[in-house]
Each structure stands twice: as structure tokens, then as C-alpha cells.
Design a binder for these strands. Sequence first.
RNA 1: GCGCCAGUAGCUCAGCUGGAUAGAGCGUCGGCCUCCGGAGCCGAAGGUCGUGGGUUCGAAUCCCGCCUGGCGCACCA
Length: 546
Amino acid sequence: MKAPETIRAALVQAAARLGVPNVDVTIERPRDVTHGDLATNLALTLAKTLGQKPRAVAERLVTALDLPPSLVRKTEIAGPGFINFFLAEAQVVGVLPSIIAAGSDYGKSDVGRGRKINVEFVSANPTGPLHVGHGRGAALGDGIAALLEWTGWNVTREFYVNDAGTQIDKMARSLWARVQQATGRKAEIPEGGYHGEYLTELARQILEKEGKGFADLPEAEGLRRCREIGIRAERDEQDADLHEFGVRFDLVSFESAMYKRKLIEATLAELDKHGHTFTADGALWLRTTELGDDKDRVLKKSDGTYTYLVPDIAYHRDKHERGFVRAIDVWGADHHGYIPRMRAALQALSYPQDFFHVEIVQLVRVMRGGEEVRFSKRAGDFVSLRDLFEETGVDAARYFFLMKRGDSQFVFDVDLAKSQTEENPVFYVQMAHARMSGIFRVAGRDAASVSAEGVDLSVLTQPVEIELVKELAEFPEVLRRAAAAYEPHRVTAYLEGLARIAHAWYHKYRVLGEPEEAARLVLARAIKQVLANGLTLLGIRAPERM
RNA sequence: GCGCCAGUAGCUCAGCUGGAUAGAGCGUCGGCCUCCGGAGCCGAAGGUCGUGGGUUCGAAUCCCGCCUGGCGCACCA
């Protein structure tokens, strides 16, 4: 059993002796090293129920505690009533062999217990190339999915294609217009259509492949073909971009399939069965106001067609039917107003509150040379994801998207992402990994062959070494917390912190040729492993050399 | 007008879901640097946590009001 669990159990027992059974004990790692390795606020929380002063409770708890000196070398009461534990040296350094033994699995845990969870992200309309905002969603969604995998969830990465709505009609009409223009005819891109060059190019390809006669097709037929070809072409392009960006989906779902599979009718019937629909003004409504929304929403318009809400509900119902206990959606900030009605709809189907969770991604601004690079999908003059990662490299692009919370506004500094200096956080972290690798290269040893077997780790006594070991021990907990909060940026923050200590250690102490060489090689190996695990999880390379 | 999100060091951001003296990086200032792999290393200064109240042993964190910014308020997606 690990030290925190042993101490937790001992505290529960001690509290029981004071007459408070089954307490919930929180153990934390104090920021300040003078506060020990582990601490608990148990005395403060029990003070009220026991009707005694916190410090008095702390003293009684410590007296009732039963902990072996091989685990805890010192226990003290501090501040308002915290109990601080100082672990025996062997305990601290003892994490190194377990890191090496776990290898590329170090950091994994099983809080998910194999439960099925769905992470839906990007889900861009097939109306054009992906832009940098999609890239942020892609990196974030993939990062969240990876965190969930590392914490024991059975994850499905899913992409939802809106291929049945009016945006597709506009794309098809825009493409048809480009086809007409390419044959010298006059045609206008429709109001709110897509002006991007990519459709001009696609129109040219169509005529090349299908012949000039394509432009003479009856309009209805031309539009139908344009829709079909356009969706296919844009989907293929998006897939290629995502693939190169290192993001792979387990499943792509289509809005049109909700109609084909008759899920629309089934969903409406079920909403009706639960008594949440009503008819007014010739339309069918969902009474979402009773479920936290600020106004009721139309499901079926008076012209007989459905609003986009219906296939979306059907789609989420389908996720539920497929056995997911939770559905995480990564959405752009412009959709955040949509959350209450979606939540209300799923509540109307009486799904559990925590079934549906949305992570919002704010839009991305791109800066180069101190100036903002403008983009606008509709106008066709935007920064595409491909342009970005071809310039900065996939590693830098992914890292930058991941290093900030999704809901913070974000300015992507292209110059910084490209720079090969320590100001660039991705470079800084990768450099730390490369440095650790360099030690083994110079030593002429394969890092993987280094084991803690028979190595006296007690020679690792320098403060920075102890700090490093403690930081390495934190990794699994960091992942658990990051996963629980759906916040990959906590991993980048952790990696930067670890890299900083590793750089400091590297500069201050030599490994090879020192009396502590064997132990320091073990430490270097563990650092390398944790940096590699963290980077790999985020979809970023851990290079052997820069 | 209503709703959601944000406001923390000069700048960019963390802050472990209520804990101890609020932390990093960049920038500034002061020292150091013949190296396993160079683009460094160490230290210092720098804060009314937007603001005013409330909750309690304890608040950047939770609640309410206000200020500022972003986004959203369709029988569009």
C-alpha cells in the first residue's frame, strides 16, 4: 500500500477512537516543504462535531495514530491544526523503481473502471477546410480522450457530420455557382454562401473529371451532385488534415443517418411519451423551459421540416442507446447558448444529469510578426489548420492549443511556436527529454536497460533530487485530476514544472563519472519516462535529440 | 435588456474543486557560466486575486450586487 493510503487508513482509525467513525479524510501535499510531505486538515473538519479546538483535536488524533517509523519519521501539528507527516527517506525515493517498472504505463489509473465514455469533437461542417479553431478543438478533444483512457475509461472518439442542414445547401449552391463560372457563365455565390477558393478549385476538378457537360445538368440534378461531391471532398480533406495533425477518430457519425435510421421519429415519439411536447402556431415544440432553458424550442417547423435540434437530440439519444455512461462534447464558444436546450432535451428523456457534458473552446486568434492574421471561414480568407501546423510543426501546434484552458481566449503566437529557445514551452519540455536521453547516449547505454535493481538510491540526497522524485510521484494524481476536470492544460503545466527542475538538476549535478552515477542514472531514466509519458499522452513527440 | 464565460505580478497564464506566507514563464535588475548537448545557471524586486458585501475556524476558490471584456439570445446550423 502506498504511503497516502496507509496514513489515510490510520487517520480513519484514529478518528474512530475519538468517537467519529467513517470520516472522509483528505490528504494533500503541502506546497511548502517545511510542512512535510503529506498533510491533513482532519482536525479542522472534526473540530466542530467534537466541539473542541482544532489544535486540541489534532493532538488527540496524533496520540491515537499508529504509524510505523519506517513509513513516517515525524508527525507534527502546525498552523490552525494541520497534521503534517514527514515520510522516511526510503519512502520518498522508493517511487523510482516503481516508475521504471511501470514504464510507459506509469501514470495510468483505473478510476474509469472500464466504463464507456464518448468524446465528440471537431464535428466541423463538411463545407470547407478546417481552420485553427477546429485545431484547438481537435487538440483539446483528443487530449481529453487520452486523459480518460489513461484513467481507465473505455473511450470512443467521435466526429459528427452535419450533412443534412442548410449550411450544406449553401455549400452545394456555392459550388454549383463556381461550376457555372468556370464555364464562363454568370453566376452568383448565394447569400451567406461560401466564397473560399477551395470551391473554385473543386469546381475545376469536377469539370475536368465529369466533362464540360456537367455544367449543363438541370439545376436540381447539378445541386444534388454538387452536394454529394462537395461533402465527400471536404470530408476527405478534413480527414487528411486531422490525420496529419495526429488525431484519429474511432467513429464518424452522420446527421443524415439519423433520418435514414428513423431515429428522428423515434426520438419525437419518446419526447412525446414523456409529455414534454406541445403544438402551437402550427409547429411542434419542446417544453424546455420546465427543464432550465429560457424559452421553449421548436422541434418541427410549421412548414413540416425539423429544426437542427431534432437530429441533435436523436444523435445524443443514440449515444445513450449505444451504452455510453457519459457523452462529452467539445463545442466552439459560438454554440454555448445551445447548451441549456440540449441539456433540457436529454433531461426530458430522463437521462442522468451527468450523462451530458460540454467543454467550450474559445475562438483562436493568430499573431505573426506582432500582427493579427485575420481569418473568416465565410469570406474564405482564414487561417487553416493545415497552414498553421505546416508552419509551426504538429508538436508545437498541439502543445500550444493544449497549454491553456479551452475556455480562455487564446492568441496563437506563431513566432513563439517556431522559436528554438527556452521561451517556447514545447521546446523547453522536449529539450528536457532530449537532455535526459543525451546522458544515456554519452554513457553508451540504452535507457531502457537501466534498472533500479541493486542500486542504492539513498545517495540521492540533494534537495533538487528529492524535489524531482516527489514531482515524479505526483504524475498519476495530476492525470487523475486533469481527467476529472477535462483539462489537459494541467498536464502541460506539470510537464513544464518537471522540465524546469530537471534542467536545474542537469546543470547543477553531473551524472556520469560521479560516485552517485548509478542512482542518478535511475533518476534520469525516471524523468525521461515521465516526460515521455506526458508528451505521448498529449500526442507530442518525445525526441531523443533536438 | 437577458444568459453563459472570463477578470490573479509590467506581459502570458497556473492555482490541485474551501486550507498554511497566492505561484511559474517572459520581461526588468544583480551576480555566475571551459559542462553528459550550445541556445544557459542562481538570486532579487514586483500583488487591494476587477470591486463591494455575505457564508465559516479559514475565501482567488462558494453565494449576492456592481464594473470591464468576449460570446450568445431564430420555426438558421
